[in-house]
Amino acid sequence: MKSISILATTMLLLVGIASAQPTGSATGSAADTGSAAPAAGSAATAPAAVDPVPAAPTSGAIDLRKTCVDAMNSDPTFAASIVETADQAAQKKRDADTLKAHTDADAQIKENSRHVVISYAAMWIIAALFVLFLWRRQQLLKTEIANLRRDLEAAAK
């Protein structure tokens, strides 16, 4: 429910941005992020996209952007290094995830003894009840047999 409402607000926000700003990259990002499930991701990008709105694309910003794109295009290793940096970051995140998975599994091994305790308790309780039942029954029978024997012997005399 909550994630749906987040998604809906994000969509509204993005649609608003797209309609308010007919040109530029915002429309593209709306189509990219708004279509899929990751509401959190698009929610995170949404404020970033909102911020520039009041600042409005001045001609200076457009120039700056153009300079950047040109610099990237002129140097072939620059794009590669961006990809490499991104890869390294992703690897770092994967490592962290693996570590977390291991830590979680470790915690599960160490802490999750509830089921074992329940089943062992049940096992011993049932066994104890059965033994108690057997023992009591045997004792009752023994005393009754002894009483009867005594009475019979007394009667036989």
């Binding site: 599994a105 599960q108 091994i109 999750n112 003894s113 089921h115 089943s119 062992y120």
Partner: peptide
């Protein structure tokens, strides 16, 4: 099942 598998031996 990690630790839970220990139920198995007696079950």
């Amino acid at each position: 099942l990690f630790y839970n598998q220990k139920i198995f031996y007696f079950h």
